[in-house]
Nucleic acid binder design. Structure first.
Lengths: 207, 207, 207, 207
DNA sequence: GATGAATGAGATTTCATTCAT
DNA sequence: TATGAATGAAATCTCATTCAT
């Protein structure tokens, strides 16, 4: 039986359990009871802290996604070259996965591509990230750092898609994973994608 | 009341209806009754032709994915440069979307990234496509057409992820869609991604 | 595809198939399709010859049960001692089982004790057999051949129950079955049951 | 709306309701909703306590049958003559019916003879009872109390079959029922069946 | 007579959510 | 806060029966 505990801690406990359960069984396949069990908490307590099963997923997604948006904004605010900024973003996403693969799995598998089931609830939030990346590209194109062959939005999608797919590869064991791979991936995604964006393509060859 | 019809035609009719329904409402959100209604067919007939709702999704996925694997294999068998092969693949995927966006939406949203819910049923099939692309990259690296900075598998994931994300952008209205965009996208994905793969990066600049 | 055939033959063919299917899978567990398959006949043809699945079971039961009633009446009409008559009845039932165990299995398992499900449709018919046996006992009691310790109906039930249970034992492999056992059973049931009915109990010992 | 209640009590309540419903409508003919209604409980609560409709029947059967096995074992352990033991067993079964006719009806009609539908799940359990009875007979034959004309198993089947059929007669109104009949039946079954087993058949005449 | 596609009512089962304690 | 019993609205799936051909 769970001891009294500060509300915030309990929420955290349930949220963390939900991440594990969603990652393991999938949002649609798991039951609220599974979350309660995993958290070692009574059935009804989940509903004391969250209005619905979906709200739990919302919270998991928003917590992490907002952090990412924050980080991207900070990166963007710096005055590094665009390529370095993209590398920092890729680095952050990879680190996020390294730090807590389950959360990223849930976000990718249950939210990012599942905009259907959840209605369009999170689409806007998701789009914000793409827009921020697009802005970086746009500014780089204006500065002449990047070519303007592609629209910034298009570039942002390709960039983000490449990263997400690499994570998906790790998640589903389609790509070798491990500490070394994580470290290399950060640069390689940018290398691969930005190779085609750079205005001075020779630079790609020098890395 | 539905007229008598050859079995294969009825299956097609139900399959097509299912694609529309899955695309519109999502696999988990729709009911088998919705599919029957959409097909203008009695409830039970769906179960006359398919063992379960899931089997319908399986069929939709496999039909299309097998075609894609076939096409990739054919492209791969030719002796064009790797870059042209990748462009042909990207072109095929984009054309697939243009021709039947609903099917691609279902595949991307309900299958490709949802390997959780369906068990790992289709993971292998999905992986085949990545492997074929990786082979093309590997051979290009051996030939000196591509650099070998990244592993072929990694490159394949980045490449496929970029395309899929562009499609996702169209699907969820995060990226402007339309005939012109579709045509441009084919080349741009390759341009963007392969720019970093090309051994002679200058070529990227000439496009 | 089934050839044209006289109606009666087709009915027989379906009826025989149904016996096998009911015996193997049970009435509630099998589907009409199973019967059609077993008969090597098209689905719809079953409904051409029978109004419902239940009607098939009715026919199977009535055909056999009426034969049994007929036989019991004939035996009863003779002027053998009651004990011989009962032995003849037991003999006939055992022979019925030996000749077509499936029919008896269906009758015992699906009809005789299942008077609930079928409403009381066949109760009266079933009761006729018990009454005929009871009559034999009653007359034997009047003649002094049997004691009148028990009511004729009670004796009839005990007698029939003993036989049916022995058959049940064979059906479910709780009792060793085989040609020799069948032959011995005929007399033993009577020996066992009638031993307590006989007015001259010593006779039991002489068998 | 049902009040909160201890889990065990609720199970009992549902179990008792199920007995009434199965007895009245038959297992295959009733719906789980009928059980819930009869218990005055919400639909889903039945599934809160039992995994399936079949599990409910299993429980009803096992609860009662295990009691009977226990009683038979106790009777068997005593040192009364075999005939007295059989009479005690018959007495217990009849009392069981007198005490709760519905349970016995369900066991006889839905389980004992329906070994088909339930797979062979309970066959072994059912057989245990026959075996125990057979043991009593076997020992009596060894002691010379019973003749060894019939195998013990055969005798056990005949004995049990006679009782069950008498109960069936009461259940389906083929045999006059009532307090007096119940009391008389206990001895009469044994009298009838054991008359043929007794080594000293004269004793049968003295009852 | 013969076929098997078509129908749809209904049964079991699940599980998110509520709420009495 | 905490508990888990209670609720009941769906959803899936089955299958007896009908009927066009």
């Amino acid at each position: 039986m769970a001891q009294r505990m500060a509300g915030a801690d309990r929420q955290r406990q349930i949220l963390d359990a939900a991440v594990r359960v969603f990652a393991r069984q999938g949002f649609h396949t798991c039951r609220v009871a599974d979350i309660a069990d995993e958290a070692g908490v009574a059935y009804g307590l989940v509903y004391h802290y969250f209005g619905s099963k979906e709200e739990i997923l919302d919270r998991i997604f928003l917590e992490r996604w907002n952090v990412m948006l924050e980080v991207i904004r900070e990166i963007d605010a710096g005055d590094a070259p665009a390529r370095a900024k993209l590398e920092a973003i890729a680095g952050f996403i990879v680190e996020s996965y390294r730090h807590d693969p389950d959360v990223m799995k849930v976000i990718i598998v249950e939210v990012t591509r599942a905009a259907n089931s959840f209605g369009r609830t999170h689409l806007e939030k998701i789009g914000e990230a793409y827009d921020l990346i697009a802005q970086i590209v746009a500014r780089a194109q204006a500065d002449g750092e990047f070519k303007d062959t592609v629209t910034p939005k298009f570039a942002a999608m390709a960039f983000y898609g490449a990263i997400e797919q690499v994570l998906t590869g790790w998640i589903f064991d389609l790509l070798p994973a491990g500490e070394a791979e994580y470290d290399r991936a950060k640069g390689l995604v940018v290398e691969t994608v930005c190779g085609g964006l750079d205005a001075t393509p020779a630079s790609a060859g020098t890395v």
